[in-house]
Design a protein around this nucleic acid. Structure first.
Lengths: 183, 183
DNA sequence: CTGCGATGAGACGTCAGTGTCTCATGTGGG
DNA sequence: CCCACATGAGACACTGACGTCTCATCGCAG
């Protein structure tokens, strides 16, 4: 049952990643169950999205843990983070846009925690001189999510290869477009 | 009448930028007209979105022209582009996500033209040695749009100041997070 | 003043998606 | 074998949004 639930969640994530407006009916079909059963597991569409949000947060935190953000140098930590979070990028992109619809309600506290940890990473990189200090850690964090979404969307639409995903994002985020002088 | 239409379009853009699921009724109210009149000007929600798409494309092309993409150096052209496109960023962010719903239908040809011109700019920068060549022009273009959307969303939600918008995006896109050695 | 055109208000009908319910089926454990 | 429980299929009512229509009103030009 818990296994069922997880399976359904994965299927829903995979589908909604591709088509964010998918119907409960479509979600059920994608998960290989009936709409009735889907409703038995998730009270409604809202509950389903919330559950997906929880899943996304959990995957993010797993990635954060695996990326060992505290180890020097910060640059390596960012690269590991991008690599680890890649499998969840599609889901995150979905949740990223979905979040903008949560008008009144405040967002899940989990996001704040994740945001804080990533922001802290960038701040640490600035303090030890690795990162430039004229871009705020908050912006760098936001940009990371934005680039993840762009990358996921690009792969999704076939305009980019999945194998380049990690490198493209990490390289752009860290190094930018300008060519470096050889040192 | 044509003036009316433009006014309605602007109001719709402003609203949908904030709340992408806004009702026709809400759009009408935001534009200060009745739903009936709104329907008289735009056959339906679909037609409205298409018109907004056309507006977005037009604003993009105006920005492209104003940015003088052909002038050296490419770096300056990118900075000008970001600056010029800023006023349209919110609308672009809306259309950017909306586009992902146009499942079957091919997208408006205007986007391809815009994409091509920006891609060409990055390619030129690579060829004259300004930009690194290990990031594809297509990815740089996609990343530019992604960062614009992130920036717009950040300003929108009050997490960033509008005045930093241009600099944040251009600096990150061009220079990345890593600190440069002083030359 | 008069008549035309545009508008606002609102009343429909329609439709898609949702959420609830019932009932038949079947499957596995006791 | 038999029962309990989960499931699938489908009917049903409800809702929100859409698109169309009518009609009264208002402003303005002739």
């Amino acid at each position: 049952m818990a296994l069922d639930r997880d399976h359904v969640l994965r299927a829903a994530a995979a589908l909604l990643t591709r088509k964010s407006t998918a119907t409960m009916d479509e979600v059920a079909k994608a998960a290989g169950i009936s709409r009735a059963t889907l409703h038995r597991q998730f009270a409604g569409r809202d509950a389903l999205v919330r559950a997906l949000e929880a899943l996304g947060i959990a995957e993010c935190e797993t990635a954060l843990a695996a990326a060992r953000l505290d180890e020097d140098p910060a640059e390596g930590a960012v690269r590991r983070l991008v690599r680890e979070v890649e499998p969840a990028a599609g889901l995150l992109a979905f949740l990223y846009t979905e979040n903008q619809l949560f008008e009144g309600e405040e967002q899940h506290a989990g996001w704040a925690r994740i945001d804080d940890r990533i922001t802290a990473l960038f701040r640490r990189g600035q303090q030890n001189g690795e990162f430039r200090i004229d871009l705020t850690p908050a912006w760098l964090t936001e940009a990371l999510f934005g680039l993840l979404a762009s990358g996921a969307w690009m792969v999704q639409s076939g305009k980019g290869a999945p194998k380049d995903f990690t490198r493209m994002i990490a390289e752009l985020l860290l190094g930018g477009a300008l060519r470096r002088e050889e040192s």
